[in-house]
């Protein structure tokens, strides 16, 4: 079961900060829901730099980032 993080409506750098907490807790699967392109890009960059694969789906106005440990 992936750890779910809802970062909708959060401004810089909260989305990255919350994702980083999950990464630091060595979660293997993380699902981040974002509604902002900046948050989406920043979370993706952090996850990729931390050794995770990122797949992004667009669901209505939101982005769902499926982050999985390589």
């Amino acid at each position: 079961m992936a750890k779910e993080i809802d970062v909708r409506g959060l401004s810089c750098p909260q989305p990255v900060l919350l994702t980083k907490k999950a990464i630091d807790a060595e979660e293997k699967e993380i699902m981040v829901i974002a509604d902002d392109i900046v948050a989406r890009d920043n979370v993706k960059r952090l996850a990729e730099n931390s050794g995770y694969d990122v797949k992004i789906e667009e669901k209505e106005a939101d982005f769902v980032l499926n982050i999985i440990k390589k």
Binding site: C12, P13, V16, K20, L46
Partner: peptide
């Protein structure tokens, strides 16, 4: 680009991100 002069420093302190 989302250029930010304080965000730059914050990101380095927070997660060593030099983007």
């Amino acid at each position: 680009s989302r250029l930010c002069f304080v965000g730059s420093i914050r990101d380095i302190i927070l997660m060593k991100d030099f983007h």
